[in-house]
Every structure is written in C-alpha cells, then in structure tokens.
Simulated assay, not measured.
Amino acid sequence: MSYADVNGINLYYETYGEGRPLVLLHGGLGSGEMFTPILPAFAQNRQVIVPDLQGHGRTADVDRPLDVRVMGDDIAALIDHLGLDRPDVVGYSLGGGVAMQVAFHHPEKIGRLVAASAGIRRDATYPEILEQQGQVSAAAAEFMTETPMYELYQRVAPRPEDFPRLLDKIGAAMAKDFDFTEQVRALAVPTMIVAGDADMFPPSHFAEVFKLLDGGLRDGGWQGEGRSAGGHALAILPGVTHYNLFVSPLFPAVVHEFLKEK
C-alpha cells in the first residue's frame, strides 16, 4: 500500500504478485478494491499494480475536473515513478477510457492495452443510460447511501465527506461529448477491446471499434495471416453485463490469452 506524488496528485496504489508488470485500472465510483475477487487470477505470474484514480478510493481529489486525458497522464507518470518497463495496461469502464488515453498519448511507455466496457463515442451509449447519467450530481448523494459505491467510499476515502463532490465531477464528465475515433484508428499499441454481451454500449459498437483497428474485415486465415495487422483483438464475453464484467472470471482469462501473444 503506497502513494506516489505524480502529475499534481498523491496517487494511491497497491502491488500484487511478481513478474512482468500489469497496471489494472478500476471503474467510476469504485476503486482498485473492486477487483478483489479476480485479483489472484490477474496476479498469476504477473506483478499487478492497482491504482485508485483521482478522487476515488484512497486517492484524494484535487482541484481539477475529472478528465480521462489528465488521468491518463497520471498513470503515465506513475509508470515513470515506479520505473516500470513498458507494462501492459488494463482498464475497465472509466479505467478503460483512462487506459486508452495512456496508449493515445504515451504509447512508448506501455506494452499492450486492454480496454474493457469503454466506448469511444458518447452517442453510442444506450439512450436510457445517458438519461441516468444525466441525473448523477451531488443531489443524488442522499439516494446512494445504501449502495456499495457509497459504502466503499465512506470506508476508505481520505475525506469521506467529498462523496457529493465526486458525484458532481463524474456527472459533469459524463455529460461532455466525446469521440475518440481518430485516436483509436491511429493506435500503434497492440490492443484488445473487451465487452459484455449486454454492456452499456451495444456489441455492434465494440465491433465498430475493432474495425477501426483493422479487425473483422476479412477471414483470419489458417495461420492467422488475415487477422488485424496491428495484433489487435476483440472479446465479447457471454452472459456478462457492464455491472459484473469486473468480477467475471472470463475477464482475466481473455486478458491473459491476449497478453501472452507475441
């Protein structure tokens, strides 16, 4: 259990296992602790570094918006701080968006990228989810006191009273339009896109992202010669939703298969 002063933030992280480093990034309103059920699977033959992102878990908020681009810089700075040699970066939901930003802006710092349950266009989100996201603000704090997110925050946050502030910031972040199509098209880091078959975005959106990576355009061939030229991959996990992917044993299973590829 350690803290790193990086990029203007005191970033909390935990380290598990030994081997080639893997940075594992949690989802919004959670913390690295949310991966507890599947951490042993991730840490088999790997050193897993699990940070708490800005304003989440044991990392106190700072005076700046919640922005995946800036949080990507936080993780790039953490990689430098720890002296990691091109670790693989795996992120879920908000963490998947942050992981993508590391690959977009700091490709030389990482090995492979896995982005799970992370869409690249806001307008690809199901309309009913966008409506729910529009209701996330400090005013919703009193209605969340019985939720696991609130319980976790109250238990571990340096300033538990900041929960309404976190809701305000994450609500503002979700209200902003985004489209990372061109950044994905230009990705040079081998990337796997992961989603549940009943995720926050339709499976077709993740297939669209894979297509931007030269995937799904032709038969793969007997020797894999028709696969994506950049070594990219797509995994749609059966029977999995946005809300349980981060504890599904299928998640580390497909990640390990992708990361062991040459």
Rank of each mutant, 00 (worst) to 15 (best):
207 A>N: 01
72 G>C: 10
16 Y>E: 03
64 R>D: 05
77 A>N: 03
191 T>C: 06
6 V>D: 02
54 Q>M: 13
205 H>P: 07
184 V>I: 14
72 G>D: 07
235 A>F: 07
85 D>Q: 14
133 Q>G: 12
129 I>R: 11
157 A>Y: 06
156 V>A: 04
235 A>N: 04
70 V>H: 13
118 A>I: 07
258 F>T: 08
165 R>I: 14
97 G>S: 12
114 V>S: 03
188 A>V: 14
106 H>E: 05
203 P>V: 15
76 A>Y: 09
96 G>M: 05
178 F>W: 14
253 A>R: 12
144 M>I: 11
59 T>R: 02
15 T>G: 04
47 Q>S: 11
152 L>R: 14
97 G>A: 07
148 P>R: 08
63 D>K: 14
235 A>I: 04
35 F>V: 10
153 Y>H: 15
254 V>M: 03
17 G>Y: 07
77 A>F: 11
99 A>T: 05
241 T>Y: 08
35 F>R: 05
152 L>V: 04
29 L>D: 02
248 S>G: 05
259 L>F: 11
252 P>G: 07
122 R>L: 10
53 L>T: 02
42 F>Y: 11
47 Q>C: 09
254 V>T: 11
173 A>S: 14
122 R>G: 09
238 P>H: 03
232 H>Q: 00
94 L>T: 08
52 D>N: 09
244 N>M: 10
79 I>G: 00
17 G>T: 08
52 D>A: 06
161 E>M: 03
195 A>D: 01
165 R>V: 15
38 I>E: 02
99 A>E: 05
183 Q>C: 00
33 E>D: 14
120 I>E: 01
6 V>L: 04
212 L>H: 09
90 V>T: 03
133 Q>T: 00
80 D>E: 15
257 E>T: 12
99 A>R: 02
198 A>G: 04
148 P>T: 09
72 G>T: 09
103 A>D: 03
29 L>C: 11
74 D>C: 12
136 V>T: 15
229 A>Q: 10
86 R>L: 00
144 M>P: 06
112 R>Q: 13
120 I>P: 01
131 E>K: 13
218 R>E: 06
118 A>M: 08
154 Q>I: 10
66 L>C: 08
98 V>F: 07
58 R>Y: 05
23 V>P: 02
148 P>G: 10
226 G>P: 03
160 P>D: 08
132 Q>G: 15
65 P>E: 09
143 F>P: 00
158 P>I: 06
12 Y>N: 05
58 R>P: 01
230 G>E: 00
256 H>C: 00
33 E>I: 14
76 A>I: 06
66 L>V: 12
